[in-house]
Structures are given as C-alpha cells and as structure tokens.
C-alpha cells in the first residue's frame, strides 16, 4: 500500500481528535479525543518506521503509549477531583481562569 494512504488515515483520525477537543463540552470526551490524536501520531510513526525499515519509530510509539497511559491516569484523577469539587464535568463551568 502507498504510504500516503496510511498518512491520510492518520490525518482523518487526528482531525476527529481536534474537533473533539475543540467542540465537546464534556471533559471525558476531550480526554478520549486526546487519545485519538495520540493514536494518529502513532500510526504515522509506525508507517514511517515500516517504510524506512528503521525500528526507531516503533520505539517512539512504545514511549508515546507509556506517556499516554500516565496522561490518562492523571487526567481521569483530575476529572474525579473536579466532579467532587464542582459537581459537574462540563467544561463551561470551570471558569476560574476567566477572571
């Protein structure tokens, strides 16, 4: 398969993730969209690694997955803390920084 097809698939996934982050109000959806974007980047890494016959890209995917797991754990802990404090997980209610 031409590598452009894989990159196009990654582009579609990344666009879905961007739209989710920008336009969903529920923090759980925002976190899932971030996972989607990370996976799009992983797909580019693996395709490039296969194309160049160089395994460094797959090592990088390994690290990205590890960091994504940490990010999901801390992010979901923050969701629980926010829900306890404010009783909602909709992002329009968190407006302390708005002044």
């Amino acid at each position: 398969m031409p590598i452009e097809y894989y990159f196009s698939l990654a582009l579609v996934m990344f666009l879905c993730g961007v739209c989710g982050v920008l336009f969903r109000r529920n923090i759980l959806f925002v976190l899932m969209s971030i996972e989607l974007m990370l996976n799009a980047v992983n797909l580019v890494f693996v395709s490039g690694s296969t194309f160049l016959k160089n395994l460094d890209g797959q090592i990088m995917v390994f690290f990205v997955i590890t960091v994504a797991a940490c990010e999901a754990a801390v992010g979901l802990a923050m969701v629980i803390a926010l829900f306890r404090r404010y009783g909602t997980i909709k992002s329009e209610f968190f407006r302390i920084l708005r002044g």
Partner: peptide, 28 residues
C-alpha cells in the same frame, strides 16, 4: 504492517488498560 510488538502493546495497554480506566471513571 509487520509491527507485531507495537500491535501487542496497543491491545494490552490501550484497549486493555486506558479505555477500561475511562469506563471505570464513568462508573465511579
């Protein structure tokens, strides 16, 4: 694409751990 190791950790870590964490938080 022949990236067997990445495919395995994708299933184990992502679908097995991260998304289940999401479902647990939704439940909690």
């Amino acid at each position: 694409q022949g990236a067997d190791f990445v495919a395995a950790i994708q299933i184990i870590v992502y679908t097995g751990a991260i998304v289940v964490l999401f479902l647990f938080v939704i439940m909690i």
